[in-house]
């Protein structure tokens, strides 16, 4: 069955145009509002961390661990 054969004969081209225009308009407005909210969120930046929470960058590096072995060590060339 071709697309042309499968269209509904009870729905007019005008109805299709109206509904398509309606959905395009709604999603265009929603897209712009979403953009506004994203830009606003970025311009505000992240909220400050609550008191008592230590940020990740300030944590000391682990003194030794399997992920900190020098290149060429046992972890290198593991096939991943």
């Amino acid at each position: 069955m071709l697309t042309a054969q499968a269209t509904s004969t009870a729905v007019s081209a005008t109805d299709i145009a109206i509904s398509l225009g309606l959905l395009v308009a709604v999603y265009a407005v929603l897209g712009l509002l979403w953009l506004f909210l994203v830009v606003r969120e970025i311009s505000h930046g992240p909220a400050p961390a609550p008191a008592g929470v230590v940020e990740e960058e300030t944590l000391p590096l682990p003194s030794a661990g399997p992920l900190l072995r020098p290149a060429g060590g046992p972890m290198a060339g593991s096939g991943r």
């Binding site: 009870a10 109206i18 509904s19 309606l22």
Partner: peptide, 28 residues
């Protein structure tokens, strides 16, 4: 669904706007 097409599309748009209003309201 063919005969009531426009009415159902209006229903769909109303339900979309309803859901979006719930989510967007608290953003600002």
């Amino acid at each position: 669904f063919s005969g009531f097409y426009l009415a159902l599309m209006l229903l769909l748009v109303a339900l979309i706007l309803r859901a979006v209003s719930l989510e967007f309201r608290s953003k600002v």
